[in-house]
Write a protein that binds this DNA or RNA. Sequence first.
DNA 1: GCGACAG
DNA 2: ATCTTGTCGC
Length: 228
Amino acid sequence: MPSAVEHPWDLSPTEAVKMQRELRDRIVLQPLEMPVRRIAGADISFNMYSDVFFAAIVVLDYTTLEVIESAYFTETVSFPYVPGLLSFREIPTLLKAWQQLKEKPDVTMVDGHGIAHPRRMGIATHFGLATGSPTLGCAKKILSGHFTPPAQEAGSTSPILDKEEVIGYALRSKARTNPLFISPGHLLDLEGALAIARHCLGKYKLPEPTRLAHQMVNAYRREHGAND
DNA sequence: GCGACAG
DNA sequence: ATCTTGTCGC
């Protein structure tokens, strides 16, 4: 098992940017070695204007895309939302849910970007480094880089470019919907991330891991901290 | 200097 | 991110 990177999380935004520059050198982008048996979806939910977070990690069978197990955790967070520093706000809670899983997944799809980030340190990449496991990012909006809209047909893609470098793909998961933005996080490469995202598409716009994690974390929030 | 800006 | 049913359009 690859080494998980350990570091303090109680940082100021300025210190967080410095930390990202240090962590960047530890990113490993390579083809997945082993075939995927289980894939997880990771997501955070909270009530508007509240700092009480709810995290969920949902593990699915890669072949059937059916839920095998899920873990949850809730706590109050203090790091502010700053575009580019999302991982410092959401990962601590996600890690506490992750620790409760009986069996870790082979790869995890995180809500947000992987290397399609100004410093290549999106939440999916950071989560991969923190757990020492393969990850990819699936975001609904672009954060950095440029792309030309994919063709209208479902399954079409176009590269997300930062200068000359390809940092991810815009994927039209369904016809007549805005594209999703897929990028590798850690211990995975560009093509592998795209192949996995496509494999996980079902009847909806969002890939099953992300869609189910979002649905289940919202159910968890509503039956627990109903209010704040 | 100005606009953009994941969740 | 979150509040929310039906409704208009491709």
